[in-house]
Simulated scan of single mutants.
Amino acid sequence: MKHDVPPPYTAVTRHPVFPQASHDEAARFDFLANLNKYLSGTIGAGNKRAYDTRVLPAFRAEHGRDPVDRFEIRRAMNKDPWHRFWSALKRNSMEMRQQNGRQMALRQMDELDARVRQFNEGRDTLQLDETVAVPRYQAAVDIHCMPGSYHGEDRPGDVSAGANYDAGIFATTGGGLGALSDGGGQALVEWIRRERPGWTPRRILDLGCTVGHNIVPLALAFPETEVVAIDTAAPSLRYGHARAQALGARNLRFVQMNAEDMSRFEDGHFDWVQTTMFLHELSGTALPRIIREGYRVLAPGGLMFHLEQPEYSDAMPLYEQFIRDWDAFNNNEPFWSAMHALDMKQQMIDAGFAPDSLFTTGVRAVVDTDIFPQAKSGGDEDHGRAAFWHAYGAWKTA
């Protein structure tokens, strides 16, 4: 049986600090999850048809040639009524998702703060530093249309930004990251156990952790490992720490820190340095600095691993580059386009990695069989529901 409808919002796992949705709030998230699926599938397919039947022929007639890059395609497609209609719906669906999650968090701020404090107070595994400034490239826009972005605070000690993010990502992905939206982290656990059976890193560092949903599975999988997650956004760290504690990840430390300067950590301190869908949030200046710092704090024989979308190469059709670029111009992702045009292998070589130490692979989020029961039998239709990432990795030579 084919599953065309995303799982209901009631399938999300409500850990002790998770915001409680009213009937209407859950119904809005269910509507938005289904709208997003409809936009990415049925309606989204009309973009390619519009390009092939209207936009490309008109471009050829006007210029006497095909487009030479994704930017020419974008300018031409932005004049097409179908693409404009689809783009408006996608933008509005994200704004509605953010507003629903935000009002849900703000409605219960006092209760959320109280529950978070129960897990945060008196613990040394949350280390905030008010001297850490949010970089301008993060503060200039509300990333993903999220009001106040990851670092916005409505009052001292606020956790609403983290709660909003955690509450809404299940609806945004249609359950494709699992009931705890931790499919990326679960996939990392599966990958490392397959690639290096029996390996137990001494220390793991997660950069740009937000609420820690991608690092908690690793901390739970390696309970004897010291795991550190850093970010510049205090509200997300407060919430993420409480979330991790509630889920039993007691070996996971959340630290407020800018990854461009990790001088607090000595050279070679970590056996594993990673990011999950974080590099595209970085400016062209910050990204190489962070990779260099990651290389410095990585021990010889250690692993650097970045989960991202694939880079725009000559092998990727220009239309695909254009459609993947949509978020850069319509979803408050100002660095998305430039980052995916980088040669990530060269970036890592420039940071110090030996060329023969580099590798690329694919990592698929672990399918949650409680949400997609048919996945227990390995059915392709359910496996395809899970998110998929491109991964850039390297093992540091001595």
Score class of each variant (00 low, 15 high):
M1C: 14
M1D: 12
D4R: 13
V5C: 12
V5I: 14
V5D: 09
A11F: 15
A11Y: 13
P16D: 05
F18D: 09
A21I: 02
H23F: 03
H23I: 04
D24K: 01
A27L: 02
A27T: 01
N36I: 08
G44P: 06
A45T: 09
N47K: 14
N47T: 12
D52M: 05
L56Q: 06
L56A: 09
P57T: 03
G64I: 02
G64W: 01
D66N: 07
D69N: 15
R70I: 08
I73A: 06
M77N: 07
H83W: 12
S87Y: 07
S87W: 05
S87P: 04
L89E: 10
R91I: 14
S93V: 14
R97M: 14
Q103H: 04
L106K: 02
Q108T: 00
R115T: 06
V116R: 01
L128Q: 04
D129G: 08
D129H: 06
R136P: 00
R136Y: 08
Q138A: 11
A139E: 08
A139Q: 10
H144D: 11
M146H: 13
M146A: 12
P147W: 00
D154V: 04
R155T: 02
S160H: 06
A161L: 04
A163M: 10
D166H: 12
I169N: 12
I169V: 15
T172L: 15
T173Y: 14
G175V: 06
L180E: 11
S181L: 01
D182N: 05
G185N: 04
L188K: 10
I192M: 13
I192A: 08
R194Y: 07
E195G: 08
E195F: 08
P197T: 03
L205E: 03
L207S: 06
C209R: 09
C209S: 13
C209T: 15
H213I: 14
N214T: 15
I215R: 05
P217T: 00
A219V: 08
A221G: 11
A221N: 09
A221Q: 05
V227P: 00
I230E: 07
S236I: 10
G240M: 12
R243M: 10
A244E: 01
Q245Y: 11
L247I: 01
G248A: 08
R250W: 13
N251I: 03
N251H: 05
L252P: 07
R253P: 01
F254M: 10
F254H: 06
V255K: 07
S263R: 14
F265Y: 11
E266P: 05
D267A: 10
G268A: 06
Q274N: 15
Q274S: 13
P288C: 02
Y295A: 02
V297E: 03
G301P: 05
E308S: 09
L318C: 07
Y319F: 15
E320K: 13
Q321N: 03
F322Q: 11
N332W: 00
F335H: 14
M339H: 01
H340K: 02
L342Y: 05
D343K: 09
Q346P: 03
P355Y: 07
S357G: 11
G362A: 15
V363W: 02
R364K: 13
T369F: 11
I371P: 08
F372R: 14
F372I: 14
A375G: 08
D382E: 14
G384S: 10
W389T: 08
Y392R: 12
W395F: 15
T397K: 15
A398P: 15
